[in-house]
Write a protein that binds this DNA or RNA. Structure first.
Length: 968
RNA sequence: GCCCACGUGGUGGAAUUGGUAGACACGCUACCUUGAGGGGGUAGUGUUCGCAAGGACGUGCUGGUUCGACUCCAGUCGUGGGCACCA
């Protein structure tokens, strides 16, 4: 009995003591992180106030679409960076707005609903919960009281509201801003539209006041649609039959839908459009005023595609067969080459083709038109080399020479760009040149001293015009100005700036999006009253298009608007007198994300989109972090809406984000095992040379830091390989590695939850930053996290006394060495955060902790400063140490340490001594020495003499405090 | 084809903006510590010649500017991204 009891008592004696010491000493990140996440939530530590004497700072992340897959380690990268910056700004005394929300309308939830019948709102709710849990685990300092969800009626009320405001506006080119539609009506009633300089549909007829006043209300409304900033138009759209929806150009990849990969065809449909083209120039100009990455600005500049030139009209020649003369408008960037035109080319889809084609050519032209209509965009794109076209048989007359110019059609001219017609100048444009060569059309040379026998000459800068009447001898610029003047005098043309940017189609044939606040009377759209917003999404039985091809909202039974009761009523009640059908389309994904950054400023406001006080305090986003994939989508549309809001005086800044950073993508490091062809034998990586093998993806969690496979784990994971033979290289089986996009199908997805569980959120945050520059794409490799994990443990140990086994800070005056280490760190870390160079600040922390550990520093003065420095990066650990150091407020409001030069002052320098620019040895010398003294000391040194080997130095360069270079 | 970004050890990357290339980590090697470990520690680790001291080479490639170049200039190759028969 005693024999057992004695050692047992011994254990009892030692265990509690041992455990206690162990617990105090060891870095128990799970307990610490749970504790502080709870503390922040309970105390609303990061709640931002709209009224404050402090200066504001707004740090914004692109809000996520809550997908069913949850977050992988690539998603939080930008959030960690912005969180560090937000926390840093709080330490600097700013009132920081750092919100988060969800872009929760979208196709995946809808497709899931189609498959399962589950309402998208339910899936969305579930996904959001999951996202929130994952985000919370990472210790972000979001002000969750400001959360927005684009699918929430209290939010999309304001998306609908903005839509109505756009509907009620038009763009006046004279005032160069959006104006109220009632102003336009007033002017139309007084003077017609001849003097109204507006952005409007191309086919808008010129009318006088009498004509306007003579229209009935419906006709007037139809006419106004030509001006409204959001309008209904028959547009040729990318119709995807499989999805039953229209896709934007940027939602189509290689001719198939981005989501699902279904075929896409061209089709005419009545759609809502946004007149973003009205803002083309201002969207370009605005880029100059904001600190956004150049590649992103380039992408937007490209997308807007401004080109300067002239628009002019040619008239077709009458003939016995074609008895009327038709105008053909063209746009050209080279009006100076007008005398070099030797043919015209129309897009096969051009409306005039039918009218001007002669009997003789009819068959050929029809065949060609038919042929090119069949070709998909994809074919046309893939097949750039083939030159094809057909002659219409008709001519236009040259506006100055009167010469007849043959009219051709060719599919290299795009119906959707410019006017769908070009004046072809083969000597000055390679495509025109190739076309002319192919069809034996003459190529007149209108350039002085240029050989065009092999190719066209398109160098504007070195152009001297010849054979061109009054343009002879002029350069590009002068010739263009002269010809534009001449065209204007003749009344057949003018200088023009053309944009590639198209108006944005705003209708989607989907269920899970914002309903339009629109009902129809006689096919004319009317807005429901603002006071009745939001118009909430109706329930439907099925989320698919209806059998008659209507959008999913066509399945709703209660989807009609009663103008008397001002509410949604059953479809049965539609009488087209009081009750009218509602719009069946919904808004696209980018609608909800185009103003969310302003709504965060005052998210609970039910009276206004945001209060005047809120917008005038927060103004704009100081730092916006997100992916570059939104360059020509969200980031362009949101700028457009902001400019509109600015015109209306609702926001105070024309550009909503001063600075933007694109975080790079985190790539996966896939692992491969190699199976010998035709066998069940797997070979370790080093054994595959000369063998024919099939690489097979292995889950990255089965591979350790040395690329060794857990064979048993692999067999369990892929039971079909249970009996496979594994040929080892010595003791181990090695896998191959390859960097690919992180994706489920490649088994290289790394889940942040697992990492938090094993190493903690602070380690994950540090590691994501340590990986490399924020903007750069970089591969993920979980193995490396042990580096920052050991660093955190080392940091923890720095605050504990090994002897006492407890938390320990000394109150003694710090030694100069430790002060130097600290201030070196303050300097570097401050510079790094300001430059968004988070990877280098993590290394700086490591160096700092290495040095302080070596110095056995326990000084409160030093270590408390270090806690604050590191708090933005590892907030949980910092809070815990801060509390242990005796503080009872959150470290997040402590002032950031200030760098003091005096601690870094050196009195000597280890000079690198180089010969012909190559460093040979170093020499420590006092910094007080003059140039001459340094030179003398260095030259007399024995190592210098050895290097010189008796030769005389030709020249000695001394840069005091930096370097000595001796030229031999 | 046009526009943009980027090329540094076995790997991720650093370099005070023209001044000691490879900081800090991962990995690897050897050793110490622990009952054991996904623990802690010490030393080494660009390539190459050499027992060593020491030398040579080295930032995609070729030139140039400079006392001195990863850094600036010209050209070139490669990788990634955007746009694309845009008149």
């Amino acid at each position: 009995m005693w024999g057992i009891a004695f050692p047992f008592q011994l254990i009892l004696l030692f265990l509690p003591h041992y455990k206690e010491k162990d617990q105090k000493m060891s870095y128990d990140f799970r307990r610490i992180e749970d504790k502080w996440q709870e503390y922040w939530a309970k105390n609303q530590t990061f709640r931002a106030e709209n009224k404050s004497d402090k200066k504001k700072f707004y740090v914004l992340d692109m809000f996520p679409y809550p997908s069913g897959a949850g977050l992988h380690v690539g998603h939080p990268l930008g959030y960690i960076a912005s969180d560090i910056y937000a926390r840093y700004k709080r330490h600097q005394g700013y009132n920081v707005l750092h919100p988060m929300g969800y872009d929760s309308f979208g196709l995946p939830a809808e497709q899931y609903a189609i498959q399962t019948g589950q309402h998208p709102a339910i899936t969305t709710e579930t996904n959001i919960k999951r996202y929130r849990e994952q985000l919370d685990k990472l210790g972000f300092s979001f002000d969750w009281s400001r959360e927005v969800r684009t699918s929430d009626p209290s939010y999309y009320k304001w998306t609908q509201w903005i839509f109505i405001q756009l509907f009620n506006s038009w763009y006046d080119k004279d005032s160069d801003k959006a104006e109220s539609i009632s102003l336009l009506e007033e002017r139309l009633g007084k003077e017609g539209n001849e003097r109204i300089n507006a952005v409007c549909d191309d086919d808008t007829p010129v009318i006088d006041a009498a004509q306007w006043n003579g229209m009935d209300r419906d006709e007037q409304q139809k006419f106004l649609l030509k001006y409204r900033l959001t309008y209904l138009a028959d547009t040729e759209v990318n119709w995807c039959p499989a999805l039953g929806t229209v896709l934007a150009n940027d939602e189509i990849i290689n001719g198939v839908s981005e989501r699902g990969g279904h075929p896409v065809v061209r089709k005419k449909m009545t759609q809502w459009s946004m007149r973003i083209t009205a803002y083309a120039q201002r969207l370009l100009d605005g880029l100059e005023t904001i600190d956004w990455p150049q590649p992103l600005k380039d992408a937007q500049t490209n997308w807007i595609g401004r080109s300067v030139g002239a628009s002019l009209t040619f008239y077709t020649a009458k003939s016995d067969e074609i008895t009327s003369s038709y105008p053909i408008e063209v746009f050209t960037t080279r009006p100076d080459t007008l005398f070099g035109v030797s043919f015209m080319t129309l897009a096969p889809e051009h409306e005039l083709v039918e009218k001007i084609t002669t009997k003789d050519q009819k068959e050929e032209v029809e065949r060609y038109v038919e042929k090119s209509a069949k070709r998909s965009e994809r074919d046309r794109m893939a097949d750039v080399k083939t030159i094809s076209g057909a002659f219409t048989g008709s001519y236009v007359l040259h506006p100055f020479t009167g010469e007849p110019i043959p009219i051709w059609i060719g599919d290299y001219v795009l119906a959707g760009y410019g006017t769908g017609a070009v004046m072809s100048v083969p000597c000055g444009d390679q495509r025109d040149y190739d076309f002319a060569k192919h069809f034996n059309i003459p190529i007149p040379n209108i350039f002085n001293g240029v050989d065009i026998s092999e190719e066209a000459f398109s160098d504007k800068e070195n152009t001297i015009i010849a054979n061109s009447d009054f343009l002879n001898g002029l350069a590009y610029k002068e010739a263009s100005a002269r010809i534009i003047k001449a065209l204007e005098e003749k009344g057949i043309g003018k200088g023009k700036i053309n944009y590639r940017l198209r108006d944005a189609v705003f209708s989607r044939q989907r269920y899970w999006g914002e309903p339009f606040p629109v009902y129809y009377i006689n096919g004319i759209p009317h807005m429901i009253p603002e006071t009745r917003l939001p118009l909430t999404l109706p329930e439907v039985e099925k989320y698919l298009p209806t059998e008659t091809g209507e959008p999913p909202l066509g399945n709703a039974t209660d989807w009609a608007w009663c103008t008397k009761s001002e509410q949604v009523v059953a479809n049965d009640l539609i009488d087209h007198k009081q009750v009218f059908p509602l719009e069946l389309n919904t808004m696209p994904g980018w609608a909800g994300s185009s103003q969310y950054f302003n709504r965060y400023m005052d998210p609970e406001n039910d009276e206004e989109i945001f209060s005047k006080e809120a917008i005038s305090y927060w103004e704009d986003v100081d730092l916006y972090i997100g992916g570059i994939e939104h360059a020509t989508g969200h980031l362009l549309y949101s700028r457009f809406w902001q400019k509109f809001m600015f015109d209306k005086g609702w926001v105070v800044k024309e550009e909503y984000a001063r600075k933007l950073i694109n975080q790079g993508m985190i790539l996966g490091t896939s692992a491969f095992v190699y199976r010998e062809k035709g066998t069940q034998r797997f070979l370790s990586r080093d054994l595959i040379e000369g063998k024919e093998v099939d690489p097979i993806h292995a889950d990255v969690s089965l591979v350790n830091a040395s690329d060794e496979l857990d064979i048993e784990g692999f067999k369990k994971w892929r039971p079909e390989f249970k009996n496979a033979e594994f040929v080892l290289d010595g003791e181990v089986f090695q896998v191959g590695r390859e960097v690919e996009k992180m994706s489920k199908s490649k088994y290289n997805v790394v889940n942040p939850d697992a990492i938090c569980q094993e190493y903690g959120a602070d380690a994950l945050r540090l590691y994501e930053m340590f990986l490399g520059p924020l903007e750069q794409s970089k591969p993920w490799n979980t193995a490396g996290i042990t580096g920052v994990y050991s660093f955190l443990k080392k940091l923890w140990r720095l605050f504990h006394s090994h002897e006492k086994g407890t938390f320990y800070l000394s109150e003694t005056v710090p030694n100069p060495e430790s002060l130097k280490t600290l201030h070196k760190t303050i300097k570097k870390v401050t510079e790094d955060i300001e430059a968004f160079s988070f990877n280098t600040s993590v290394s700086t922390f490591m160096i700092c902790v290495n040095e302080l550990s070596a110095q056995k520093c326990h000084s409160r003065q030093i270590l408390e400063a270090l806690i604050i420095l590191i708090a933005p990066y590892a907030p949980h650990l910092a809070e815990e140490l801060w509390a242990k150091a005796g503080h009872n407020t959150s470290v997040s409001v402590a002032s950031f340490p200030i760098f003091e030069e005096k601690y870094l002052v050196e009195d000597q320098k280890e000079y690198p001594i180089s010969f012909n620019g190559k460093m040979r040895f170093t020499l420590t010398l006092p910094l007080s020495l003059s140039k001459e003294e340094v030179e003398a000391k260095v030259l007399s040194h024995e190592k210098t003499q050895a290097q010189l080997a008796g030769k005389e130095p030709k020249k000695v360069i001394v840069v005091p405090g930096k370097i000595v270079n001796i030229v031999v």
